[in-house]
Amino acid sequence: MELLECTLTIDDLDSFVTDLGEIGDDHDVTIQAFDARYVADRTHLERAVEFADRAIERDENVARDRAVEILLYAAGRRQIDRALEMGVGEGENRAVVLVDSEDGDRDAERNALETVSELDAVREQTSTLESVDEERLCTFFDITDAEREATDATLGDLVGERVALLEVEK
């Protein structure tokens, strides 16, 4: 899995998603763009990929598209419309673009990532996972103050738990 942390300026979301799909097809990889404000850390996305692949392997996936299945797990939700809040939108976005090859082809991932980075929508490559919006993450993933006070787990750990719970709650 490769990640591109960047600022995106998206004029036409449908066109941007089409571009990502075409790049993914050209390089035989899955590409999904996330609003970085909803991503706890790299591990959050690694777990989402792991659980999405497991669901697909077991024929328990909700979405037909692997990128959407990854989005569902990252969001900790089974409803696609609710998970889409975690995706990017039109306008300026602090983003994380995930590129993953099902068969572990790192060259394909890097080549696809380079192609994504050349899209007009990519304004600048910049760290977007360095600082997290704790309030937004807690609200989106329904993590209460009481839950945070009851454990010494990091916020990333608690978000990771939500990703794992989606597997259990099927």
Results as ranks from 00 to 15, higher is better:
residue 80 I to C: 00
residue 73 Y to V: 02
residue 93 N to F: 00
residue 69 E to K: 06
residue 93 N to E: 04
residue 49 V to R: 08
residue 44 H to A: 00
residue 49 V to Q: 08
residue 69 E to H: 07
residue 72 L to N: 03
residue 53 D to G: 14
residue 67 A to Y: 04
residue 82 R to Q: 12
residue 58 R to V: 03
residue 55 A to H: 15
residue 103 D to A: 09
residue 100 D to N: 11
residue 49 V to D: 04
residue 96 V to W: 02
residue 76 G to W: 06
residue 49 V to S: 04
residue 102 E to F: 11
residue 53 D to P: 05
residue 72 L to C: 04
residue 79 Q to R: 15
residue 86 M to G: 04
residue 79 Q to H: 14
residue 40 A to C: 07
residue 87 G to L: 11
residue 44 H to N: 04
residue 61 N to S: 15
residue 57 E to D: 14
residue 88 V to H: 01
residue 50 E to W: 11
residue 67 A to W: 01
residue 92 E to Y: 06
residue 66 R to I: 02
residue 100 D to E: 11
residue 69 E to P: 06
residue 41 D to T: 13
residue 48 A to T: 04
residue 92 E to C: 03
residue 73 Y to I: 03
residue 89 G to M: 06
residue 48 A to N: 02
residue 84 L to M: 12
residue 61 N to G: 11
residue 102 E to S: 13
residue 95 A to K: 00
residue 74 A to P: 06
residue 80 I to N: 00
residue 66 R to G: 00
residue 50 E to R: 14
residue 95 A to F: 00
residue 50 E to Q: 14
residue 59 D to Y: 10
residue 81 D to T: 15
residue 51 F to L: 14
residue 103 D to R: 15
residue 63 A to C: 10
residue 85 E to I: 10
residue 91 G to F: 07
residue 88 V to Q: 02
residue 63 A to K: 08
residue 51 F to K: 12
residue 41 D to G: 10
residue 69 E to Q: 12
residue 90 E to V: 14
residue 86 M to L: 10
residue 68 V to L: 10
residue 76 G to S: 05
